[in-house]
């Protein structure tokens, strides 16, 4: 979809053309859903955050005037909707820990049987997210752009008004800082499989 087509659909949708809004959702739902999944770590939360995002976008379409791409605006809404859900989920945990009365503990939604792999993936995504949020602003922003939104070096450079070389070095610093936080926290192991692969490769080189 070109910028002009997108803006045309936005204007049509803002005037109540639901077919135009459906085209917008179809165009952006994959990026929105994947970003929400990486932030929340859960398919159900990602679905909720994505729906919140698009409904919020629908209610505020008139405020979108095309100064930035719709994807950038949706990214902000998705980030916000995901963080809202994460905060709510933290509240749920707090309530259940602080409640003394038997039976007063709110039940977490039953998603059915959860394979270990899903749990492990969620824990990893949560650990990464918390470490990313603990970074300073510059590092967090560039990591979100590259690792969460898969933006190219060129796009990041344009968005931050930097040279590509500077993007590369700042990204490296941000990743090193992230690794440092994860190592210090040590709450979860990311490296078992990757490290084994790397060690195997290095070992083979010595054979």
């Amino acid at each position: 979809m070109t910028v002009e087509e997108e803006l045309r659909d936005v204007r049509a949708a803002a005037s109540g053309d639901s077919a135009a809004f459906e085209r917008i959702v179809r165009e952006h739902q994959k990026n929105v859903y994947n970003l929400a999944f990486k932030l929340t770590g859960s398919e159900q939360d990602a679905l909720d955050a994505s729906q919140d995002t698009f409904l919020k976008a629908y209610q505020n379409l008139r405020a979108f005037r095309g100064e930035s791409r719709l994807s950038v605006w949706l990214y902000r809404l998705t980030y916000n909707a995901s963080m809202d859900i994460i905060k709510k989920s933290r509240r749920g945990k707090l309530i259940s820990l602080s409640s003394d009365e038997e039976g007063a503990v709110p039940e977490m939604p039953d998603d059915g049987p959860t394979p270990d792999e899903q749990v492990e993936r969620r824990e990893r995504l949560e650990a990464v997210r918390e470490a990313v949020l603990a970074l300073d602003e510059d590092k967090r922003r560039i990591l979100l752009m590259r690792e969460y939104r898969q933006m190219s070096y060129a796009d990041i450079a344009a968005a931050l008004d930097l040279e590509e070389g500077t993007v590369k070095s700042r990204l490296a610093r941000a990743r090193a800082a992230l690794a440092e936080i994860l190592k210090k926290r040590g709450t979860i192991s990311f490296d078992t499989q990757s490290k084994r692969q790397i060690d195997d490769k290095e070992a083979r080189r010595h054979d």
Partner: peptide, 24 residues
């Protein structure tokens, strides 16, 4: 090794469920 683990965890590309568009 650590950063490869992080990168792999975030290299997800899932198809959004049909319920997303329908719900919206």
């Amino acid at each position: 090794a650590l950063l490869t683990g992080v990168h792999d965890a975030l290299s997800i590309e899932k198809d959004p469920p049909e319920a997303l568009l329908r719900g919206v």
